[in-house]
């Protein structure tokens, strides 16, 4: 009996126990890290690179439907406009600047759709590079874009978001 008590005291002094406690902690932490993505809000990035107004409209509808399923608080949705996709946020007065075959689409139904999605928490990011390539060098042609949402490279942003855990969808 006496031996056992002594050994008990010794056992608590042994670093092995600290290692054990540390590993259990690590295990719990790892488990938590694995479980986290399920409970957290869904993070999704939509990539729009098409200039066709019909396709852009249907992409906006996709985002709205996605939000309907998840609830406005259930998802963190970013729409990255790159290539011809930047025309989604161009006001009609940008039209003379644009090369042939492209239209400035932030008008009518599309504009309402964008504003509605913004109210529901969707962020629209625009590739500055793609804008410059299409002769747009002034943000007054854009539909209320926060300077922070004017990203230097849309591709870089898509990569950054995916690496941060966002799911990629190209509508």
């Amino acid at each position: 009996m006496y031996d056992r008590q002594r050994e008990f005291r010794f056992a608590w002094k042994c670093p092995l126990w600290f290692c054990f406690a540390g590993l259990v902690g690590l295990l719990v932490w790892t488990g938590a890290a694995y479980a986290a993505p399920d409970s957290a809000r869904q993070q999704v990035v939509y990539h729009i690179s098409d200039g066709d107004p019909d396709r852009q409209r249907s992409a906006l509808r996709n985002v709205a439907n996605h939000l309907n399923i998840l609830g406005d608080d259930g998802a963190d949705i970013v729409v990255v406009l790159q290539g011809d996709g930047v025309t989604l946020l161009l006001r009609p007065d940008a039209q003379p600047q644009l090369p042939g075959g492209l239209s400035a689409n932030a008008t009518g139904e599309v504009r309402i759709g964008i504003e509605d999605l913004r109210l529901r928490g969707v962020r629209f990011e625009v590739c500055a590079h793609s804008l410059a390539r299409r002769g747009i060098d002034d943000d007054r042609y854009l539909l209320d874009v926060d300077p922070a949402d004017l990203v230097p490279s849309g591709i870089d942003e898509l990569v950054r978001l995916q690496r941060a855990g966002y799911t990629y969808i190209k509508p």
């Binding site: 031996d3 008990f8 092995l16 290692c19 690590l26 295990l27 790892t30």
Partner: peptide, 25 residues
């Protein structure tokens, strides 16, 4: 060999955890 149980339990715990963590990571 009364005293062995503590060490054995500690060791088995550590090994189990190591095995699972390694398998996971």
């Amino acid at each position: 060999r009364v005293g062995a149980s503590w060490r054995a339990i500690a060791a088995s715990g550590i090994l189990l955890v190591l095995g699972v963590v390694a398998g996971w990571l």
